[in-house]
Design a binder for these strands. Structure first.
Lengths: 337, 337
DNA sequence: CATTAGCAGTCGTGTGTCCCGAGTGCTAAT
DNA sequence: ATTAGCACTCGGGACACACGACTGCTAATG
């Protein structure tokens, strides 16, 4: 693969990514002043096709990159575009506002990435299984109303408003919560239920039904709706690849199915940004799509991932750069200061 | 308009709502055993068309209800279907979990309604302008980290995690918050900023920049993203009316634009469920759609609305029934106990 | 030997034509 | 008032055709 072939492949991929239509030899030579005639380019393209980097939708059309072509482009030719100074600052600023509430963080991240890249984005909430209880606090708002705040050793915070049952209304709620907090400190969240059954005593035990329910809801990060955030699906309508409504339905269905996303993301283990192109994506519902994923960390441990989905013809360079920046900021936001 | 005409109009609307295709005289007579021949029905339909209740997409097709036809159906013929016992219980259960956090409430409601009705749903957050500060509390999680909880007289609660600036780290945060809370109790949220500038004294004044920012963020219910919840857009793909991608884009754009939704909903003042059919909807982007809206209350005052959008051919009866039930439950959840 | 011009060949797409069938409106019979 | 019968209308699918974009090949060129 000589220099000129590489150059042609690069230009072809980029033109196709931008234009969305098969690229012909004439276009290529005229548009990018390659200094050679279309015929020469045709010869080169024939070679590239034979080697599997290009495809021919049909005889009388221009060429399109194959998965292998994209792969070569991403691995060998792509240079990461530097992001705008102002864009980076925007990303940083958007994490400054409030930080530790998981639901907010993942929604914010999904929205941010889908806004910047114009591709749909899914963010998986951080794994919380290994987290341990670091503290439990209560704010009493009214005789029958309180806010409980749970804090983990990895720095997550969850709060819930709870109604106080009548039989507890006279008692010293703050003291009870403090006692629970002391008793259970250091217990992994997933063992909380067991630990409570075993360790609660006295007054606490008498009301353990109430406490159990409240704390379970706090610890499990409740409803699935808070375990995954999806944003930017509307942008799909801008890509001719998704003009077909049936296809749109399949892809959207996939993105909204937590188990599928989970399966796809949990098997990626590396801490770096990864790119899956076309058939490399192990999911039947999203044929002819590409996926870029990144990990984020809490401390030095990878705790979650996010994913950007687009047509195979996607702006890999920009997406990769954005994901690197965002996952970096998200990790920083999760750092336990 | 005699009984038989009414019956024909009713059946035609319902068949068209279910099938989505213009209804012919033959279909009508065969499918619903009207006891008269297609020819008779044709005559009746011709009359109904002349009176403006029906339309003819083209000469050789069946009839379709006009806006006036739907309107007559909704006002005169529609009988509200009773909802399943189990469905009602499901609705009630979904509000039992946690209650007073606005963002959660409106998202939950949007999701609930769009799941039940299979139409996209928008919920506007309650107006908060008239609410007054009822209390402010703090939970200190770490030297530099605290959760602030704001409570209004109408029962809303908002909480935010905040980083405590270094210069405040030694001081008695709880006392400061209690003092602010006392000082500002009863102040309408929209005047908080002014009131703080005027009333803060001593230590509090010295750090008023910090307090101002924190409390403003609490009171303004922050980002727009929390002022409106949208759910169920994917269900649009199931209606042939939205097969056209351009149209889909327009309608989605409308639903995602808070100002448009606001304009549409704020002008509806009644506390009951209202139906807008086709051209009755005052918005150019959503031609050929219908909208059902309902109000919800906090106490005895209407504080917000929600909206279900569908093709003109929508299941008015069911949507109305669901909105009545849901807005009732939502109002109950907002009641200040 | 690499490059290029020229030309025949291929095939998707847009356009025009035709036919079918569903459904109507009208008229005359009941 | 209702119904049967029939001519008529019109949208949509099937088919054919021409256009044009692009290729692949061959032969000429430096």
């Amino acid at each position: 693969m000589d220099e000129r072939k590489r150059r042609i492949l690069e230009l072809l991929v980029e033109d196709y990514v931008n234009m969305g239509e098969p690229v012909g030899s004439r276009t290529l030579s005229r548009k990018y002043q390659l200094g050679v005639s279309p015929a020469t380019i045709r010869n080169e393209m024939a070679d590239l096709e034979e080697q599997g980097y290009l495809e021919h939708p049909h005889t009388s059309s221009g060429r399109v990159p194959s998965d292998k072509g994209y792969r070569y482009y991403v691995d060998q030719l792509l240079e990461r575009p530097g992001l705008d100074r102002s864009l980076i600052e925007g990303i940083q600023a958007s994490y400054r506002a409030k930080a530790r509430e998981i639901a907010w963080l993942i929604h914010q991240t999904a929205r941010l990435v889908s806004d910047i890249t114009a591709y749909p984005t899914v963010v998986l909430a951080p794994r919380g299984e290994d987290a341990r209880l670091a503290g439990l606090s209560v704010v009493i708002l009214a005789p029958a109303l309180a806010v409980l705040v749970l804090q983990t050793d990895s720095g997550y915070i969850e709060s819930r408003t709870v109604g106080v049952p009548p039989e507890l209304m006279g008692s010293d709620l703050a003291a009870m919560v403090a006692e629970i907090s002391n008793t259970l400190e250091g217990v992994p969240l997933r063992d909380l239920e067991n630990a409570m059954v075993k360790r609660l005593r006295g007054d606490l035990w008498r009301h353990h039904g109430f406490w159990l329910e409240v704390i379970q809801r706090l610890a499990s990060r409740g409803d699935d709706e808070e375990r995954v955030a999806l944003s930017g699906t509307r942008s799909m309508l801008n890509y001719p690849e998704f003009r077909d409504v049936e296809r749109l339905k399949r892809v959207l269905g996939f993105l909204e199915t937590e188990s599928e996303i989970d399966r796809l993301l949990r098997t990626r283990v590396s801490g770096r940004v990864e790119v899956l192109i076309g058939t490399e994506v192990p999911a039947d519902d999203i044929q002819d799509c590409s996926v870029v994923t990144a990990a984020y960390r809490a401390g030095d441990q990878v705790v979650g991932r996010l994913l950007v989905l687009g047509p195979r013809r996607m702006h890999y360079g920009r997406v990769i750069a954005v994901l690197e920046a965002v996952s970096e900021e998200l990790s920083r936001a999760l750092e336990w200061a």
